[in-house]
């Protein structure tokens, strides 16, 4: 169970387009997420799941309302401080892995450490290798992403997301492109991370993934229509 409030969204709305073609992606969202929670955001395609995730990661700004993560008012940050904040605070895992194709797996994990600079220079390589070991792909450290299977690439992406030891991990359809065995391995990793005290938010429409979560927030037409807790 969460120990304290980590993320708070107050009256968050997001509107795209101009008059006539206006589209409201999020409507008056109020959501509080505690530190160490494992939350699943579910809903049909176009329900606003990814938009909500973008609010939390600072990838997008609300048209109205406020987003506070770890005490930081995210939506007021300027671009460069926001990038640094994101690098320190949030690890992002994408559906299509989004590894840098020209760099090895190890280099992919080292790159965010270089951007943020929070891990001492001398410790970076050891930390990156440890993360790759932790995600079960230590043997592939010097391979290019294209030489790995989808599941291995996704685990590399999780290792990269953890490079700066962020307290929050967000994943957008992380198993959408994986077979059941690899999906299972990813779920196991998330479970371990929650156990280690990380807050994990997963956008999914896969039942297995939402079942793993301690809390499931359901979105429909940009509004929260369900917020269920489960005791495991």
């Amino acid at each position: 169970m969460p120990t304290s409030e980590f993320i708070r969204l107050n009256e968050v709305s997001l509107t795209y387009g101009a008059d006539g073609t206006r589209f409201q992606a999020l409507k008056n969202i109020n959501l509080t997420i505690g530190a160490g929670e494992h939350l699943a955001i579910v809903g049909k395609s176009g329900s606003g799941k990814s938009s909500l995730l973008n609010m939390i990661t600072g990838i997008d700004h609300p048209s109205r309302g406020e987003v506070i993560v770890g005490g930081t008012t995210v939506h007021t940050l300027k671009e460069s401080p926001l990038a640094l904040w994101r690098g320190r605070t949030v690890g992002i895992v994408f559906q299509f892995f989004q590894l840098i194709p020209t760099m090895t797996i190890l280099q992919n994990v080292l790159l965010p450490m270089e951007f943020v600079g929070s891990v001492p220079l001398g410790d970076r390589r050891a930390r990156a290798l440890a993360l790759l070991e932790q995600t079960g792909i230590g043997a592939h450290a010097d391979k290019l992403p294209s030489e790995l299977s989808g599941g291995e690439q996704q685990r590399a992406a999780i290792a990269r997301a953890l490079a700066n030891d962020p307290p929050l991990l967000v994943a957008d359809e992380p198993t959408g492109n994986l077979d059941s065995r690899n999906a299972g391995l990813v779920l196991e990793l998330f479970r371990d991370l929650v156990k280690a005290g990380k807050t994990v938010i997963v956008v999914t429409h896969e039942r297995s993934l939402s079942d793993e979560s301690g809390r499931v927030v359901t979105l429909q037409d940009g509004a929260i229509v369900g917020d269920e807790w489960s005791v495991r």
Binding site: Q98, P112, F115
Partner: peptide, 16 residues
């Protein structure tokens, strides 16, 4: 472009 998005998502500033 997509890689620029990824770089920024993993913490790169505009100047980086």
């Amino acid at each position: 472009v997509r890689q620029i998005g990824i770089l920024k998502a993993i913490g790169a500033t505009r100047f980086q």
